[in-house]
């Protein structure tokens, strides 16, 4: 019963929103040119899955986003470990990073275009630049807050720096790293879409943009629904990975 309720509750709200959307479209409160009905939107999406035309933009967007996000995660964890564990690295790197951090990633698009052209490399650079920050910040925190006792245990066992990093510091920072990676992933999806729109790279973002330009509103909304689905699915996947990686943690009630 409680399980059923837990499964139904989130659906209930989603169904409500769709119902509202349907009512607005049915009573033509907004012209169908701007807002098609939900069933037409979902039909469009189904058709694009059936004829396979969704796969090219979908895979292009996913690939861009994941590559950018993985690069950002790698860089964020490496820099975070250096800054969190070494005061020297912190003093050396922090001021510059504090300058770069507030820069909007979209402001980096023109710069990236100058360096990389309207290319895949440009998009990946911008995505990585934008999604590195949450990973970096939470890694700095995680590596900086390794319990003192555990540091002492490492010293007493005569561990080398590398062993300490692998066996103690990284697993200890992992919960923070994963939380940062989750925020980074959301940013990488946003930036994947933004770069596609800006640089006209193949992908869901560009399709949405072009659909809007030519008033193909069902296509436009189908694209948006698709993006939402990507977000939900990827977040679910990460959540599962997190639960497994952090299975040693006491279960939350």
């Amino acid at each position: 019963m409680t399980y059923l309720r837990a499964a139904m509750l989130p659906l209930l709200f989603a169904v409500g929103v769709i119902a509202l959307w349907w009512l607005v479209a049915w009573f033509r409160l907004v012209s169908p040119v701007f807002l098609p009905s939900p069933e037409r939107t979902f039909d469009e999406l189904a058709v694009r899955f059936a004829d396979g035309s969704i796969w090219l933009p979908l895979s292009a967007t996913l690939e861009r986003m994941i590559v950018g996000w993985l690069l950002a995660s790698l860089a964020g964890v490496a820099l975070g470990a250096a800054i969190g564990l070494s005061p020297l690295a912190r003093d050396f790197l922090s001021p510059t990073l504090e300058f770069l951090r507030p820069l909007p990633a979209s402001a980096m698009i023109p710069v990236a275009i100058l360096f990389f052209g309207l290319s895949e490399g440009m998009a990946i650079f911008v995505i990585a630049f934008g999604s590195v920050w949450p990973v970096l910040m939470s890694s700095i925190f995680g590596f900086g807050h390794v319990r003192i006792r555990l540091r002492e245990v490492a010293i007493l066992l005569g561990m080398t720096k590398t062993r300490f990093l692998i066996k103690i510091a990284t697993p200890s920072a992992l919960p923070d790293i994963l939380a940062g990676m989750r925020s980074g992933l959301a940013i990488s999806l946003i930036l994947a879409v933004v770069t596609e729109m800006q640089a006209s790279l193949p992908g869901l973002g560009r399709d949405i943009f072009l659909a809007q330009r030519s008033f193909r509103s069902t296509e436009l909304y189908a694209g948006i629904v698709m993006l939402g689905l990507i977000g939900v699915l990827i977040n679910q996947g990460l959540h599962r990975a997190e639960t497994w990686l952090l299975r040693w943690r006491p279960q939350r009630q």
Partner: peptide, 21 residues
């Protein structure tokens, strides 16, 4: 400096064990 020949047992066992192992 520390040596493996001299081991410490800390009072706060919960902090001295690796929770992920």
């Amino acid at each position: 400096g520390p040596s493996r020949a001299r081991a410490i047992v800390f009072q706060d066992y919960a902090n001295a064990l690796l929770p992920w192992r």
